[in-house]
């Protein structure tokens, strides 16, 4: 080896992993329904809490969940962050709001994007509703909801967040 050949100390070798996602019965049902624009959760037979997305069991009680509950696409901000960090290859340009949202009739939050709102005005207890992609673009994914937008309803008091009925919150 010639002496002027610089040693290779570092190269980037990306790894691509492609998984076949085996959903299991509860997520499979959830994904089949969200393909049609319907949000479906499951209720725990013991504690009666409603989970969305459902995973087929209640992590708190350790029992299977079977009863399906169709949920509205309205919900409440449980907490949130404004992400300003630029992350390489992220298609979403900062600053953007990620919120822990809990749907009316559900008892566990999930994270989603918030938009059509002033970032500085996002707050815990704020009311939101899903903005869906055009139905022609729907697939078996939570991404069918583009983001959640703020709606003109009074804020939910702290103690009621995550405990609203299916009928929602009218103040």
């Amino acid at each position: 080896m010639s002496e002027d050949t610089a040693a290779v100390t570092r190269i980037e070798t990306p790894i691509y992993l492609k998984y076949n996602f085996t959903a299991g019965s509860a997520p499979a049902r959830f994904l089949a329904r969200i393909r049609e624009g319907v949000l479906t959760g499951q209720r725990c037979p013991r504690c009666a809490n409603v989970y969305i997305p459902p995973r087929g069991s209640c992590p708190a009680c350790g029992v299977a969940t079977e009863e399906e509950v169709v949920l509205p696409d309205k919900g409440t901000v449980q907490s949130f962050t404004v992400v300003a960090i630029p992350i390489p290859n992220n298609p979403i340009k900062p600053p953007f709001v990620i919120a822990n949202l809990v749907l009316d009739g559900a008892n566990l939050s999930f994270i989603h994007l918030m938009s059509e709102c002033e970032n500085s005005e996002v707050r815990i207890g704020q009311r939101v509703q899903a903005v869906w992609k055009p139905s022609s673009e729907w697939t078996h994914a939570m991404d069918n909801i583009r983001y959640f937008k703020s709606i003109d309803e009074p804020d939910v008091p702290i103690e009621k967040i995550g405990k609203l009925p299916l009928s929602g919150w009218e103040g």
Partner: peptide, 20 residues
């Protein structure tokens, strides 16, 4: 597929908890 892919890292997960 059952949750949205937001790439916010650990800070994105813990920031809402800190806010609370």
């Amino acid at each position: 597929p059952f949750s949205v892919h937001l790439n916010a890292g650990a800070g994105g997960y813990f920031a809402p908890i800190i806010r609370e």
